[in-house]
């Protein structure tokens, strides 16, 4: 388990990137809540480490992030790409404890 940052380090409805066991992880915070998602920071289409800079929102009842480069959508909970069923971002489990964000 890694304690990566304070919850308040992530402005509501935005993302940041954390280094976790040598991997780049994109963390997104839903609104002004304690709900935080973690997916790989690597954009498989754009081939760059940018996912944390994507815009988040909902598609139906799924939370999603849109790639900042070419706008593919990914399910924040499962990492699945909405446009290409063969593509999936790695995901991590996140805990928020005492105002800190932890990656499992």
């Amino acid at each position: 388990m890694t304690n990566v940052c304070a919850l308040t380090d992530i402005a509501p409805d935005t993302g940041v990137c954390a280094l976790h066991e040598g991997e780049q992880v994109a963390l997104f915070r839903i609104g002004n809540t304690e709900q935080v998602f973690a997916v790989s920071n690597y954009d498989p289409f754009g081939k760059a480490n940018v996912m944390s800079r994507g815009l988040i929102g909902t598609k139906g009842d799924r939370y999603m992030v849109a790639s900042p480069l070419y706008k593919q959508h990914y399910d924040l909970a499962t990492g699945e790409c909405f446009e290409d069923e063969n593509i999936k971002l790695k995901t991590w489990t996140v805990q928020v404890k005492d105002g800190r964000v932890e990656l499992v």
Partner: peptide
Amino acid sequence: KDEHIGLQDTNDIFLGNMQKDG
């Protein structure tokens, strides 16, 4: 601003033009 930052697209959110490599 806090109320607006989550609305900004790729370029506006960091006040720069993102290129292909990020």
